[in-house]
Design a protein around this nucleic acid. Structure first.
Lengths: 197, 197
DNA sequence: GATGATAGTTATCAATGGATAACTAAAGGG
DNA sequence: CCCTTTAGTTATCCATTGATAACTATCATC
C-alpha cells in the first residue's frame, strides 16, 4: 500500500509525473499505468483523483498555465526596462522548456490536436497570453525608439515565438546534447540586433 | 476482397495513407487497422508489405525524404539568383507542410523521439540537408553583398528554419483557418528585410 | 489452359489500455 | 477510543492493437 497522501498533494504528484513521463515516453503513449507506477500507487487510484484521462490532461494544462502566467507577471514586474524585459521573457521560455521538455511535444500531441478540445483551447490561451506580453514589451521598445520603423510589433512577436519553438525542436532532435539556454539566447540577441533601429 | 495490386503500388498507397492518417489521428495513435481500412485492405495485409510497423515508418521517411531532396535540387537548379532561390526554398517548405501537415507532428512523435531511432536519424538527415541548402544560398547572398556583415549565415539559416516551424505550429494550433503560404511568406519577406545589408 | 508466384482474406492470439465495482485501511475530529 | 471520511487496493471487464498462421484467389507466363 502506498503511503496515504492528501488528495491535493497526490494530484500534484500525478500531474508532475505526467509531465515527466510525457517527455520520456510521449504524450500520446503515456498510459495511466505508467503514471500510477511512477507515482507509486496502483492504476485505478488515478481515477479516484481524475474522472477520466482527458481530465488529467486538463489539470496538467491548468498547472502549467498557472506557472507560466506567474513567471511572466514576475518578469514584467521585475524588469522595467523594455529590452531587459523582452530578454527575460524569452529566457523564461527557454528555461521552462528546459525544465519540462514535454511541453513542445504536447503542442503536437493528438491528445491536444484531435481528442481533447479543452486542452487545445487551454494551450491556445497560454500562447496568446505570451504573445500579448511580447507585443506589449515590443511596443514599449518602439516607444523608446529602439525598434525599426518598418517592423510591426506583431510580426516581431511571431518571429520571437518561432525562434523559441525552432530552437526547442533543434535541441530535442539533436538529442539535447547542446545547452538550450545559452544557444537560444545567443540567437535571440542576434535577432534583437536585427530588430534594432 | 480488395482489388489486387502490385506490391510496389500497394506500398505507395499504404505510405500515402499513413501520411494522411498521421495528420488526422496523430502519428502515435495511428494503428495498422486504420491504415488498412483507409487503403481498402484488411489489417494483416499490411504486414505482407512491411515486416513491422516500425519498418512502415522508415518507408514513409524514405519517401518523404526523397521527395524533399528532389524539390530542393529542382529549386537550386531553377533559381540561379540567390535571393529568389532562398525564397523558393522557404516557399517549398510551406508548400510541403501544407500538403502534408503530418510532417511537423511526426517531428514530435514518440515513434520518432523514442521508439524508432532509425526514423529519428532519417529525419535529422533531412533537416541537415535543408539547412545545408539554406547556408549555401545565404553564402551566395553574402557574396553579392545582400546580407548584413554581422549576421553569420548559420544563424540566419536557423532563424529561417525556426520561422517555418513556428508558422507551422501557429497554423496548426489555430485550426488551420488562415492560409499558411501567404502568411508564412509575408513573415519571410519581413525577416529577409532584416537580413539585408 | 495449366501452373507457380504472390496479394489478400479469415481466424486467432497475447498483451495492453482505460475504466468500474467492491473492499480495505489510514487519518483525524469529536 | 471510536467512527466517519476517503485514499488506496484487488479483481475484473471490454475494446483495441500488433502480429502470426493457414487458406484463397488472382495474375503472369509458359
Amino acid at each position: 500500500m502506498a503511503k496515504r497522501m492528501s488528495a491535493e498533494n497526490r494530484k500534484a504528484k500525478i500531474i508532475s509525473a505526467v509531465l515527466a513521463l510525457a517527455d520520456e515516453i510521449g504524450p500520446d503513449r503515456l498510459t495511466t499505468n505508467d503514471v500510477a507506477h511512477r507515482v507509486g500507487i496502483t492504476q485505478p487510484a488515478i481515477f479516484r483523483h481524475f474522472p477520466t484521462k482527458a481530465d488529467l490532461w486538463l489539470a496538467v494544462a491548468a498547472d502549467v498555465s498557472a506557472r507560466l502566467h506567474a513567471e511572466w507577471e514576475a518578469v514584467a514586474a521585475a524588469q522595467p526596462d523594455p529590452q531587459a524585459r523582452l530578454r527575460a521573457l524569452v529566457e523564461a521560455q527557454f528555461r521552462v522548456i528546459h525544465a519540462s521538455p514535454a511541453l513542445p511535444l504536447i503542442l503536437h500531441s493528438r491528445e491536444l490536436n484531435v481528442e481533447n478540445p479543452g486542452l487545445r483551447d487551454a494551450v491556445q490561451g497560454v500562447m496568446h497570453a505570451y504573445q500579448a506580453h511580447l507585443v506589449a514589451t515590443l511596443s514599449a521598445l518602439r516607444d523608446v525608439g529602439a525598434l525599426r520603423a518598418d517592423l510591426p510589433v506583431e510580426d516581431a512577436a511571431v518571429l520571437l515565438i518561432s525562434l523559441v519553438q525552432g530552437m526547442a525542436i533543434r535541441w530535442s532532435l539533436g538529442g539535447r546534447r547542446v545547452d538550450l539556454l545559452p544557444e537560444g539566447m545567443r540567437l535571440f540577441d542576434q535577432q534583437l540586433r536585427l530588430f534594432a533601429a
